[in-house]
Computed example of a mutant assay.
Amino acid sequence: MISPFTIDVPQADLDDLTDRLTRTRWPEELPGVGWDYGIPLGRVKELAEYWRTTYDWRKQEARLNELPQYTTEIDGQRVHFVHIRSAKEDALPLILSHGWPGSYLEFLDVIEPLSAEFHLVIPSIPGFGFSGPTHETGWGVDRVARAWAVLMERLGYDRYGAHGGDFGSGISRALAVAAPESVVGAHVTYLPGPPPPGVTFELDEEDTRRLARIKELIANRPAYQALQATRPQTIAYALTDSPVGQLAWIAEKFTEWTDPESDISIDHLLTTVSLYWLTATAGSAARLTKETTGGASPVSPAPLGIVVLPHDITKAVRAHTEYVHNVVRWTEFEHGGHFSALEVPDALAADIIAFFRQLES
Rank of each mutant, 00 (worst) to 15 (best):
R43H: 07
Y50D: 13
F355N: 11
A219I: 02
V144T: 14
P113V: 14
T331M: 07
P101M: 10
R173V: 12
P31E: 15
L30K: 15
Y157I: 02
M1N: 12
I306S: 00
A179G: 08
L21C: 04
Y190L: 01
T208L: 03
W100I: 01
G102R: 03
Q233T: 03
I84V: 03
R43C: 07
T200A: 12
S3V: 10
S265H: 08
A174Q: 09
G132E: 08
L247Y: 09
R287F: 02
D263Y: 04
E29T: 15
W26I: 06
R25Y: 05
R58N: 12
R143S: 12
L92Y: 13
A251W: 08
I171A: 15
L239M: 05
L114Y: 13
G294A: 04
D15Y: 10
N65K: 09
W148K: 01
V141D: 02
R221K: 15
G336W: 06
L342G: 07
L247D: 15
T200D: 12
V144L: 05
I352P: 05
T72R: 05
F81G: 00
L108W: 11
A238L: 07
E360Q: 12
A178F: 06
E334Y: 05
V328S: 14
D8T: 04
A87S: 08
S265E: 07
S274C: 04
I122P: 01
L217H: 15
D16V: 08
R78L: 05
V344C: 13
R209S: 03
I39C: 14
T234D: 09
F81V: 01
H325P: 10
G198H: 08
L309P: 12
N326C: 03
G245S: 11
R63Y: 04
